[in-house]
Simulated assay, not measured.
Amino acid sequence: MIRLDRQGFIIHASANISELGIDCSAALLLPHITDLAERDHAPFLGEHVAATLAGRGQTGWIEFPVIACPEHDTCRETGCQRWYALSLKPMLDEAGTPDGALCLMRSIQQLRSLEGELHARAITDPLTGLANRQAFCASLRRHLAHGGGQMIAVFAVDGMRALLMRYGQRTADEVVWGFAKFLETMALPGHELAQLDGERFAVLLPEMTSRGAREWAEDVVATFAGLAAPASAKAPQLTASAGLARVECTVDWTLREAELGLVLARAGGGRQVAVAGHRRAA
């Protein structure tokens, strides 16, 4: 429980406020309610409190993060940030004008953490940990909104269906996971990786020319073939192929062009990089 004066300064608070790094009893100057909020959210909290104290605020709860540690004024570490919800009830004097407010604050950190976890699961592939198709398409839409023009590559391990039928789902999952980790090691700073489905991966290649994108993709394909060379004649030969396209028109068009390039590359025997209408061995 917190009591505010008509300017929003804290004139009384329960002992629990010490958990937020503020000691009202030892303060020479009254802290303002916005002193509780993380710096970037203080203006929003201040506007809401000012409107409520002026008698024009909306009822209900507002949410904001608090920097809750001894270094309250300087600490900006993510682990020190906790989310709280605040509800205000204006107090009126005998003339019926606002004369401060009573505030209730409650922690919603657990709810926020759960929401963040659910969001992360919704946009992440559970097997590889990469962004999923939904997240990658959202990224493409953002790039298209700014004009597009970037290159993307769509990769797939050749012969995954035959591998699945011969060795089973567990082995296929291990190959998919391994190829995802391989792509992560080959990706350059700024590249965005995603898993489009069970066997196809996409990489957004910002600030790369079409020639640079082709050379990078060919290096990926050749390196994977070398690393995945079978140790014996009975082991499967793993190779990969890729299709390239430029981010333009729409998300569906962009992905269709890249996936058509992948189809052409695999139709040529695999271990190739192709653009729709053009093929070139790695």
Rank of each mutant, 00 (worst) to 15 (best):
M105K: 08
C75V: 09
G55I: 00
R56G: 11
L102M: 02
T59V: 06
D125W: 09
L53S: 02
C69N: 02
L118V: 05
D35G: 09
D125Q: 08
A54S: 08
A51E: 04
T59A: 14
E115S: 06
A101I: 13
E77A: 14
F44R: 11
W83N: 07
A68E: 12
P126D: 09
T128Y: 12
C75Q: 08
A54C: 09
D99K: 08
D73F: 11
A50S: 13
G96I: 04
P90E: 10
G129R: 11
P90K: 14
A131R: 15
P126E: 06
L36V: 05
D93P: 09
E117L: 11
T78N: 15
Q110M: 08
P98N: 03
S87N: 14
L111C: 08
Q110H: 14
H119T: 07
H32T: 11
S107P: 03
G129N: 11
R112V: 07
I62M: 13
S87R: 15
C80Y: 04
T34A: 15
R112F: 03
P90Y: 14
P98Q: 04
A54H: 05
S107H: 06
E47Y: 10
A85N: 02
E94A: 07
V66Y: 10
L118R: 11
E71N: 13
C69V: 12
L53M: 03
I62H: 12
A54W: 02
P70L: 00
E77Q: 13
A95S: 13
F64V: 01
G79F: 00
G100P: 01
C69P: 00
L53W: 04
M91T: 10
A131S: 15
R39V: 10
L45D: 01
C80T: 07
H48D: 12
C75L: 08
G79P: 00
L53H: 02
L127S: 01
T124R: 13
A51M: 05
A95N: 09
G96C: 02
G57V: 03
H72V: 15
F64Y: 05
A50T: 13
W61I: 05
G100W: 00
T52F: 00
R121F: 12
L111K: 14
T128H: 11
H48S: 13
S87Q: 15
G57L: 02
D93A: 03
P65C: 06
L127R: 00
A37K: 14
Y84D: 02
Y84M: 13
E71V: 05
L111Q: 15
E63A: 02
G55Q: 00
E38F: 14
Y84W: 14
E47T: 12
F44N: 06
A120N: 06
Q58W: 05
W61T: 08
W83S: 07
G57N: 02
A122S: 06
R121Q: 15
L104N: 07
A101H: 15
A50H: 05
